[in-house]
Design a binder for these strands. Structure first.
Length: 232
DNA sequence: AACTTGTTCAACCGCTACTGT
DNA sequence: AACAGTAGCGGTTGAACAAGT
């Protein structure tokens, strides 16, 4: 049986104090990132390595942008979500200075609602005619609808029940896209920000396009999804 | 002003993938 | 090949705050 990642009895939990933040910053400035398991003890922190890693990545990293999302960032998140699903780390990789946690929270608290109010199902990015057939763009979603949706993402029709490796997950998304019951039309996205993205995240998107465009000659230029049309 | 309800977001948890032995 | 340890991911939780009554 595997040991727990840390001795829970001897670790702090909950919000980080300024002193803890400073210890973590000082340690990483001196020693760099990595070896999270041994970091807390080395840095004099009563936290588990996982907690330190998350605090650094989501809050303390000097290259974080923070603050409100720009309109182009919103558009990109929506496009990428249509393409990748809830692969928040991949989506965040295309948004310089943003973290997966931040993108995920922003999606759940803002963008989901925005899409629903536009009459678009945020799960599959299709127009949601059956919910509001007469005027989908003017529909105002109820709070209960939003909260129930955000609390039940694991049961989303297009999402795998549980995460697997990236390749598997990308394949799942691809197969989902090819499924008429929940799929987007084939996509040809211009996924760019003004800031040059990292090469690794580019590779992921390229890989995804290869999967979406099998040798059968699937035409990527065909009908764009409703969500994408809204931003053209 | 006090209370209730809703929203946001930092942090945690459990799981899987990856890597080394 | 099998196992153990670690890193990273996505879903979920709960405290803090805001808005409404």
């Amino acid at each position: 049986m595997r040991k727990p990642c840390c001795d829970k009895q001897d670790t702090n939990k909950g919000a980080w104090s300024k002193q803890e933040d400073q210890k973590l910053i000082d340690y990483i400035r001196t020693h760099g990132e990595g070896c999270w398991r041994s970091l807390p003890q080395a840095a004099g922190l009563l936290r588990c390595g996982k907690s330190c890693r998350l605090r650094w990545i989501n809050y303390l990293r000097p290259d974080l942008k923070r603050g409100n999302f720009a309109e182009d960032e919103e558009e990109l998140i929506i496009k990428l979500h249509a393409l990748l699903g809830n692969r928040w780390s991949l989506i965040a990789g295309r948004l310089p200075g943003r973290t997966d946690n931040e993108v995920k929270n922003y999606w759940n608290s803002h963008l989901r609602r925005k899409l629903i109010n536009m009459g678009i199902d945020p799960n599959n990015h299709r127009l949601n005619n059956h919910i509001h057939p007469s005027s989908p763009s003017k529909r105002v979603v109820s709070d209960s609808e939003i909260s129930s949706g955000s609390k039940n993402q694991a049961t989303q029709s297009c999402q795998p029940a549980k995460s697997h490796g990236d390749n598997d997950r990308v394949s799942d998304a691809a197969s989902c896209l090819e499924d008429d019951t929940c799929a987007l039309p084939d996509l040809n996205l211009d996924l760019t920000m003004t800031t040059i993205p990292s090469s690794s995240s580019l590779a992921v998107v390229e890989e995804r396009h290869q999967i979406a465009e099998p040798d059968t000659g699937t035409e990527l230029e065909s009908a764009p999804s409703p969500t994408l049309l809204l931003f053209r």
